[in-house]
Amino acid sequence: MTNLKLDSNWQRILDKIRTWARVNSPWAIHFNSGSCNGCDIEILATLTPRYDVERFGIKLQGSPRHADVLICTGPVTLQARDRLIRIYEQMPEPKFVIAVGSCGLSGGVFHGCYNVVGSIDEVLPVNVYIPGCPPRPEAIIYGVVQLLNSLKSGVSKVGTVAELVEKQEA
């Protein structure tokens, strides 16, 4: 290995391969930050035979350290807020957040309740919003596909290794 420079041609090709792999097999982690469970069971339903997102390579993963996408449901409660941030920080770069359900988008019916911080984007940067109470499994699949399309077309930036290293050093 002679050329280990981060902006070399080799690295650029490797970055492309990484993006290609990511788009074809995103691993997701699910966290409920105060939802009523309705969105959670619909997310689970997308994994089961009728909708079966595993055929697209999407896998629900138990550990945040293995995940690319954080699927988050519900309004953020005071107690869950710190945990949500901690989970997000444990995820390796590049990482994406999908907010599922009306509560995650705006607080929904719980807007203004005393123990609710508010929507997910008040706590984390959100890439995709999926509205609905709860959204149908088809809508959740569509939301994930939107995210993957934006990665493929370069609208959402995945970031090269060179940029990630720069970010970490900064």
């Binding site: 939802s35 519900g74 409660t77 869950a80 719980f110 309740c113 609710v116």
Partner: peptide
């Protein structure tokens, strides 16, 4: 428990 406590009764 209490991670999902939202304050519905007061709401």
């Amino acid at each position: 428990l209490g991670y999902v406590h939202r304050g519905i009764e007061k709401g």
